[in-house]
Design a protein around this nucleic acid. Sequence first.
DNA 1: TTAAAATCTACTAAAACTATAGGGTAAAAG
DNA 2: CTTTTACCCTATAGTTTTAGTAGATTTTAA
Lengths: 136, 136
Amino acid sequence: MLSKKTKYGLKALTYLASVNNREPVQIAEIAKHENISQKFLESILLTLRRNGFLGSKKGKGGGYYLIKEPHEILMTSVMRVLEGPIAMIPCVSLNFYEKCDDCPDEKKCAVHKLMLQVRDSALEVYRNNTLADLIP
Amino acid sequence: MLSKKTKYGLKALTYLASVNNREPVQIAEIAKHENISQKFLESILLTLRRNGFLGSKKGKGGGYYLIKEPHEILMTSVMRVLEGPIAMIPCVSLNFYEKCDDCPDEKKCAVHKLMLQVRDSALEVYRNNTLADLIP
DNA sequence: TTAAAATCTACTAAAACTATAGGGTAAAAG
DNA sequence: CTTTTACCCTATAGTTTTAGTAGATTTTAA
């Protein structure tokens, strides 16, 4: 299941991308427009800022804004920050690899074999989509 | 993340498929061979039986066995039973569809648009794999 | 220089889900 | 009738998710 964190994060990014100018947009405005709990969204936007997707400005007239052009923002990186590994199991993860402690030989493992394909197909989708592609 | 339930279920199915004859295999044997908690595996095999993948036999010489040929068992149906919906979000699910209550228009939703592609790509993988394809 | 408007930070907590263990019941075989 | 096995129900520790609360900090504008 996709977490609400990721869902809301994607919606917020898309909303910011759809605002043509790059003026800061307040959390409250995003939350209202996308039907998101404002406090929850606050923490999500914070992690997006810390990971280099957003800039912020405090005080009156402040808010969040995109730091790159929408077509430069790949879904692979967005998903990794919001949802974590793209692989469904660590033993097939590119960026978060971990060996299964119960599995003696990955090459012979059925789960490994299947999940490798799933990872590759998901990766292809995320690599073919930038934030610009999601704007309605 | 793939649940251990699914992981163990897949391993158990593969193990049963690799046993050439269709003699019942005891839970304990599967659990030992695949390094799985026996009690947990017990409940997993039960749901696999209830969903038409396995047959069982009680008493001495009993155990679980495949009810169909490995090449007839599609990963789509296995995954749906073990892991649940293949879609990451209900609004793009074929078999478990549900509307998002926070989303006014699916057609304009960025999350919907992205997750539809992810679902399709995952589906293609699962449809192209039967249990027979996972046997080492 | 004060007040208002925002983000930032840390802490807490309810709810849901996951993985597992325990103990007893039912059926099949010998 | 005893052993062996699957079957079934319950509880529970642990983790993750999804927030909510309270306040600190920074910026702008009056």
